[in-house]
């Protein structure tokens, strides 16, 4: 967490919607800019961190930051409208205002990735917090080994950023594996479970670092696979999701065993949470 720039437990700062794009019938991206220009210029985050987005009188929700960490004049969020607050966010238009607190939490272990193969396994909208890692790696391509991007969706229509996946797939030393449980006409990728693609992933388990974000069931299966392939536990990371209220470790809503997802996560090392993850529904 980039503490010096964090807007933490205080009242939200106002941010304006600069642009909005619809990614799928229920998924949309908001590009935000803090109204206070100095605060915007000073805003820094690490891939994997999240912001709390607040709609006046409606509520506040944690949303991962998906923009490029190098970008200075905006902060982007990709959101699925599932409930009250996210549906309210979906109704925003450019020029509308939201409250923003953040960034919060511990992001992906970028400092440990240097020189290693990077494996990203995401499910559904779990790709959002991973996208900023992809951008990070692509900007500094020479510093990393292979890049493997594995993404699974329920239905072919749920895949957002198709062109980006196409583009990434053409890059050298980069492998893109996408699967949909249910396909559709002209679906160029695999139809079936994303786990069925694992065998195709080419990386060196001894020098790879893997990151997972998605439904917990999917992450459990992924972890088992990667560990059997010889990836050490210490190289396996995952991003957790829990209901959150305060985002600063006070309210206890996101408590996960002895940890708070907001403060100690959302990114955890596999070793830290495997015991608890073994209990379904914990």
């Amino acid at each position: 967490m980039n503490a010096s720039h964090a807007i933490d437990a205080g009242p939200p700062h106002t941010a304006s919607v600069v642009a909005r794009s619809q990614e799928s019938p229920t998924i949309f991206t908001l590009q935000l800019r803090l109204d206070d220009a100095a605060a915007q210029a000073a805003y820094r985050f690490a891939p994997g961190q999240f912001n709390m987005l607040y709609l006046y009188g409606v509520g506040e929700v944690p949303i991962s930051i998906m923009s490029d960490p190098e970008e200075r004049d905006g902060i982007s969020h990709t959101i699925r409208a599932v409930g009250r607050v996210t549906q309210g966010l979906a109704a925003l238009k450019p020029g509308d205002r939201v409250g923003l607190r953040g960034p919060f939490g511990r992001g992906w272990p970028l400092q440990e990735m240097g020189g290693r193969d990077v494996v990203l396994v995401t499910g559904g909208l779990g790709c959002a917090p991973a996208v900023s890692v992809i951008h990070y790696v692509l900007r500094r391509r020479e510093r990393f080994g292979k890049l493997v991007i594995i993404q699974g969706v329920k239905h072919a229509d749920d895949l957002i950023w198709r062109e980006q996946y196409d583009r990434w797939a053409k890059l050298p030393d980069t492998q893109v594996l996408v699967a949909a449980d249910e396909g559709a006409a002209l679906w160029p990728w695999h139809v079936g479970r994303v786990t069925e693609l694992f065998g195709l992933a080419r990386f060196n388990p001894a020098r790879a670092v893997a990151m997972m974000c998605g439904p917990e069931g999917m992450m459990r299966v992924t972890a088992e696979h990667l560990l059997t392939r010889g990836l050490p536990e210490s190289s396996l990371y995952l991003s957790m999701e829990r209901n959150m209220q305060c985002a600063v470790g006070r309210c206890g809503h996101c408590q996960f065993g002895g940890a708070f997802v907001c403060r100690d996560g959302p990114v955890f090392n596999w070793g830290e949470v495997k015991a608890l993850l073994a209990h379904r529904g914990f």
């Binding site: 006046y56 009188g57 409606v58 509520g59 009250r84 607050v85 549906q87 109704a91």
Partner: peptide, 17 residues
């Protein structure tokens, strides 16, 4: 603030809290 919260929720098309 209670009234504004209701109005803002309705403007965004979601049920007031």
């Amino acid at each position: 603030p209670q009234m504004l919260a209701v109005v803002n929720s309705l403007l965004l098309g979601v049920a007031p809290r």
